[in-house]
């Protein structure tokens, strides 16, 4: 006992006797575990996932790619609106496709990247 020096402690044997009156708490709680998990899932289900964070992370990543490309010695190339397709076959057009294009030596301009970033934000309409 350290937090109340001005209080006399009970003898250890009396404390042990008091504790021995306690019913064991090794109760099987599976029913309550299950029901509370379901209640919690329902309670929190109305919260939206965090698309804003994901979209802005993608935008930030695109910006990073832009910076890297702009300081490289790429020759500017004409913008092609159909450039951003499902290059990696993941089923969606995302930052991974941009990286795949860059890796394959495609020449991406800042305008291309800006257009891609804008398209991500507009696809996640609630992010603006």
């Amino acid at each position: 006992m350290t937090d109340h020096d001005d209080i006399d402690d009970l003898p250890a044997e009396l404390v042990a006797a008091l504790k021995s009156r306690e019913l064991p708490a090794d109760v099987i709680t599976r029913r309550v575990d299950r029901e509370l998990a379901a209640t919690a899932a329902e309670h929190f289900s109305t919260r939206k996932p965090a698309p804003r964070r994901r979209a802005w992370a993608a935008v930030a990543a695109v910006a990073m790619v832009g910076i890297v490309l702009s300081i490289s010695n790429y020759d500017p190339a004409p913008t092609r609106s159909d450039l951003f397709t499902d290059v990696d076959g993941s089923g969606q057009v995302d930052i991974a496709d941009v990286l795949a294009l860059a890796r394959d030596g495609h020449e991406l301009t800042q305008d291309d990247l800006d257009a891609f970033a804008a398209s991500i934000v507009s696809l996640n309409g609630d992010d603006s």
Binding site: A37, A40, A41, F44, T46, R47, K48, P49, A50
Partner: peptide
């Protein structure tokens, strides 16, 4: 947090 994280934290 979002739904999944809040549920896990709870």
């Amino acid at each position: 947090a979002d739904a999944a994280s809040a549920k896990r934290a709870f």
